[in-house]
Write a protein that binds this DNA or RNA. Structure first.
Lengths: 237, 237
DNA sequence: CGCCAAAATTGATCTGGGTCAATCGGCTTT
DNA sequence: AAAGCCGATTGACCCAGATCAATTTTGGCG
């Protein structure tokens, strides 16, 4: 879907009461810096399925995800897709060395991002090592996750992939909605399949199998973990 | 294999005539800084198969690879292994957020690294934004590669994986030994398999098949690309 | 509510790559 | 040069997960 970016102007909000104030890149800024920072970003809303940026596009902005979920993916020429990650509020997107995006990003459901033009953002960062360190920390965290995911993609069975996915997603959801055994799944089965390197049929069958065995319950918009320990055992083995 | 680190003392070398002076993290340092930097690192040699650090170890040092090749990998409890990357001269290892290594690294053949204790290195970096930026750049480059590799692991066939591996490795070898259609492969078939998410048998069969088709020639210690265009076609599709 | 389209599930069948099991071949050791 | 070893290759067979093909369920909308 093509983008129809709706700006909310720099006046319609304040960084100081932003939902991700404490978790995003901004967490490294003090109150004074935040004031200046406020003028660099503009809030943008996107509808479900809209694309924020595409692979190979020249990257002109950084994005700070404020609300919603995004899928980050790469496509092969023949249409095969690999989702390289899901972004949640507080995630920082748009870093690259080539000047072009190395993956595409689109909204799963409604999304709000804070968009920063690269040049002023780069200037702001320049003499603020703490912000740079914070960005570096986020990149390294991302790298960690990427390596874990390589293990999953290269060496785990379908059952293990699905179980690990449920646990991983539950973990990330905690930060937003608090601890719970109900895992909300805003993305489609196809998205899950493309994230795990499986087909949609295998994902569906695996969920059904786990439900038959009383390990999970498939509910509207998510999965309830009836027996979290069994899920963990499946994911670990 | 257990490490038997052999130090070459800070006196036995100079950063200024280091092989990776221009490509490693050090490329961001000027002549004056280099003098100080010199005292932070110590050269360490490792024999074939020796482990530099293991996953879950508390990380106390950073490493700058000077000579040789290393495999970086993660193990599952049951022994399955995923190689998350190969390190070449100029690569910088040891960054993490948790204080523990998130993968293991060992030498493929003889290796020389430049080891930096974390604390003094961190102090040196502190007020040098250009070094921090350089490290950030290396992390982002790594992240790029990791995402490409996820696509390979999750969505490509065995033939495509092997072809893409040969091209990728050839590309990296260029930086060291110059452009050539002979791809040196210092790692074992098992290493290649664990990098590509395949078995050793499949890697071997794929090589043999490509050779039968006149696309490559299997030579001692590597592969010669007889028909690079065909290899590229295989990798792309 | 009833209609339509998209998403998800389920079933039947197929196959790429894994598993198991011999060799093979190149080095090292003696 | 014979023996032993370890990595690599090859062959025969198998199976997890893909593919193909219907349904079934869900969600949006007049």
């Amino acid at each position: 879907m093509k983008p129809s970016l709706v700006t909310i102007g720099p006046n319609g909000h304040f960084c100081s009461d932003c939902a991700v104030r404490e978790s995003a890149v901004c967490s490294s800024l003090d109150a004074v810096e935040l004031r200046e920072f406020e003028h660099l970003g503009r809030r943008v809303r996107l509808g479900s399925g809209e694309t924020v940026f595409s692979e190979e596009d020249i990257s002109t902005s950084f994005y700070n995800l404020l609300e919603g979920v995004m899928r980050l993916y790469k496509l092969l020429p023949d249409g095969r897709r690999q989702i390289v990650g899901f972004a949640l509020p507080g995630d920082f997107l748009g870093m690259n060395v080539s000047g072009r995006h190395n993956f595409s990003a689109d909204a799963i459901g409604a999304v709000t991002v804070c968009q920063f033009a690269k040049t002023p953002f780069g200037r702001f960062i320049e003499d603020r090592a703490h912000l740079l360190r914070r960005i570096n920390e986020l990149a390294i965290r991302e790298l960690d996750h990427a390596r874990d995911h390589m293990v999953l993609l290269g060496r785990r069975s379908a059952d293990e992939k699905v179980a690990a996915f449920l646990l991983g997603w539950r973990e990330r959801s905690f930060a937003l909605k608090g601890r719970s055994d109900t895992v909300p799944l805003p993305m489609s089965r196809q998205d899950i399949a493309d994230y795990l390197g499986l087909t949609i049929e295998t994902v569906s069958r695996t969920f059904t199998k786990l439900e038959r065995h009383g390990v999970i319950e498939i509910i509207h918009g998510g999965i309830r973990l009836l027996d979290p320990a069994r899920v963990e055992a499946l994911a670990a083995a």
